[in-house]
């Protein structure tokens, strides 16, 4: 029932994840009923093909509020964690990474936490690729969650970040948008801090949309 080419002896958590997480979403589903989870990951570098996960932070968003009690954060053990430029940003040294949890276990716990949820992240595409690579390596599956990128939302919905047609324009960074929104930034360049800040930003943009549309939001407003 899981489509083609699926191995029969997959672990149960992988099956559960695949069964409950899909691309289909009822476009009329109201905002308050959509289970969002803000996510951010720190990685060993910026090469999708080479670099690995160092830490992941998630904060669930239920009924329009960040649920601090159910936040989760993982420090990933990476044997080959390089001591490079990225370390200066996220501050996770190789020795620190060695204290973490093995990647396979982190991903197993992550799947349980994000199963069936909509991921909210800033520049989420990169994080999703890295997590996806990990999932493929460890369990042979894809990253299946629907995703919302707050930097893309900012470009689409905020005048200050609209596409200008300028060739080198990039989606705005988390700091930039938060400064524009007047939101407090919490623990930048830590996975859980960025996840939290991204969650706040997401709520703020959704608030903007609600006021602009003069109604509550539905899934169709956020997921194309």
């Amino acid at each position: 029932m899981f489509g083609w080419g699926r191995r029969k002896n997959e672990p149960e958590f992988v099956r559960n994840y695949c069964a409950s997480t899909g691309r289909k979403f009822d476009r009329k589903r109201s905002f308050g009923e959509i289970p969002f989870v803000a996510l951010d990951a720190e990685t060993t570098g910026f090469d999708i093909n080479k670099d690995r996960l160092l830490s992941i932070g998630i904060v669930p968003l239920n009924q329009g509020a960040l649920d601090v009690a159910n936040r989760q954060t993982w420090l990933v053990q990476q044997a080959a964690s390089p001591n490079n430029e990225a370390v200066k940003i996220h501050g996770i040294a190789p020795s620190e990474s060695a204290k973490g949890i093995p990647e396979a276990q982190v991903l197993e716990e992550l799947l349980a936490a994000i199963s069936g949820k909509v991921i909210v992240g800033h520049h989420i595409g990169f994080d999703a690729e890295i997590i996806g690579n990990g999932l493929r390596r460890n369990f042979g599956i894809k990253f299946r969650n629907r995703m919302i990128d707050t930097s893309m939302m900012a470009m689409r919905h905020l005048d200050a970040f609209h596409r200008t047609g300028y060739a080198n324009q990039r989606p705005p960074g988390l700091d930039e948008v938060c400064v524009h929104a007047g939101l407090p930034v919490l623990g930048r360049h830590t996975a859980s801090g960025d996840a939290f800040t991204t969650g706040q930003l997401f709520l703020w943009i959704c608030g903007r949309l609600r006021v602009r549309y003069g109604r509550q939001l539905v899934a169709g407003d956020l997921l194309k």
Binding site: A65, D67, V68
Partner: peptide, 14 residues
């Protein structure tokens, strides 16, 4: 207390 906080963001007009 902060462990179980719920953080909300609302914009002018809500």
């Amino acid at each position: 207390l902060a462990q179980s906080a719920h953080v909300r963001v609302l914009v002018a007009g809500e």
